[in-house]
Design a protein around this nucleic acid. Structure first.
Lengths: 143, 143
DNA sequence: TCTTAAATATGATTTTTATCATATTACTTC
DNA sequence: GAAGTAATATGATAAAAATCATATTTAAGA
């Protein structure tokens, strides 16, 4: 359902939400290890996320990545969307182009309700919210 | 969530369920077009499905593919399982090795309920059932 | 303003997935 | 039992996703 890249992106954004502020920027090399993603790979992803305004960055010494208020208010779905793109998210489970609510494909009824629920949950969950839950211990770390 | 191959596999099994019997076998070339999957590709998939006893086949003239009673009683999940393998199905949405019900990852609560429901539905749905629904018109064809 | 530290841009490599091609084997029919 | 037909086994190629590498640009601080 989600690509590896999306998963990595969520992990890194969440990590930044918890550990960074504008006054405490974090460098790629300090993200890579704790979230357990290869450095060069996450570097590229972070660049893409920054370009799409999902995270903030400044370069040069004392530079790094962090989340500003706008970034914190993005939803988890936003993150997935900028990485995987719209089509993948809404693709029919049998990859039938013509499948939709009126003309559902054979698996549509079995899957669509749950799938829509997942998307709705991801859309309702801001990065800020997720980070808050994690710090409360509702979910464990080691990403 | 599911690979292309799994989707193709479901389509072809469903097509066979609806259109074939032991006395009316169907050849690859007559499956490929209606389900809209490249011939050489579906051929290979059908071979794999046959080897795993998800579908039946006989070769030579008058040969082809069909579903026997055992095949018809397989579930949709079985089909996905033989193609994609167990790991992919149960993988955590953030790909965290240690994520489980007791120690859930940050997205676990958002996703696991819906995901489990999908898996349950796929497990409860026999090929036979799905074919029946389709012929009733509860779901449309052109696969 | 020079040096250094960091992200950025760009693209090469590797791995995985999807797709294609063909020689071999088994079954029918004559 | 020979000829033809269809699946099977095997592997080659192509495309996409994941991973790695590096030269360039920007900002900070001396």
């Amino acid at each position: 359902m989600f690509s590896n890249s999306s998963k990595y992106a969520i992990k890194s954004v969440l990590f930044l939400a918890i550990n960074s502020t504008e006054n405490k920027k974090i460098m790629v090399k300090d993200i890579s290890i704790p979230i357990n993603v290869p450095k060069a790979y996450i570097a590229k992803l972070l660049q893409e996320l920054a370009k799409k305004n999902m995270i903030s960055s400044v370069r040069g010494p004392k530079g790094g990545f962090y989340l500003n208020e706008e970034n914190l208010n993005r939803t988890v779905l936003d993150v997935v969307r900028v990485i995987d793109g719209e089509k993948k998210l809404n693709a029919c489970m049998l990859s039938l182009k013509k499948c939709n609510e009126e003309k559902p494909c054979p698996l549509h009824n079995i899957l669509s309700e749950s799938r829509n629920k997942i998307l709705k949950n991801l859309k309702n969950k801001r990065i800020k919210d997720l980070a808050y839950e994690v710090t409360l211990g509702n979910s464990f770390l080691p990403l």
